[in-house]
Amino acid sequence: MTISEQGKCLAEDFSFMEDWTEKYQYMIDLSKSLDKMNSKFKTDDNLIKGCQSKVWLHSSFDGKKIHFQADSDAIISKGIVAILLNILNDRSPNEILSADMSFIDEIGLKEHLSPNRANGLSSMLKQIKFYALAYSKLN
């Protein structure tokens, strides 16, 4: 599935959730399914600026695809990063750079987050795109 297809599926999943508790529960459950981050990558350099809780994002590039690892000390932030990685992990730089990211607005996640958390979400996305841009220049 492409990023936008997967994003649409997620937006549909979210639309079936009745209230904020279900959405939060979904994110909390997702946070637990996130692959464990290698602790050696939990460095200050990998901290995403603009998040009030600590969110680490590490990337590596095999020449074709970008592989992300992430973690957070707060569960809801970890859930947010898990949503992003579910859709954006193991993609090529071009897939990420050209993707339709409107699913983020469609899932209505931002309105369920505090302004700080919504900024955190934007910062995470920005960092992912930044890596994609940097790796695209390598090709």
Binding site: Y24, Q52, S53, D73, A74, I75, I76, S77, L113, S114, R117
Partner: peptide, 9 residues
């Protein structure tokens, strides 16, 4: 538990 998670809920 992280204080931000509690505060958000």
């Amino acid at each position: 538990l992280h204080p931000y998670d509690i505060g958000s809920i």
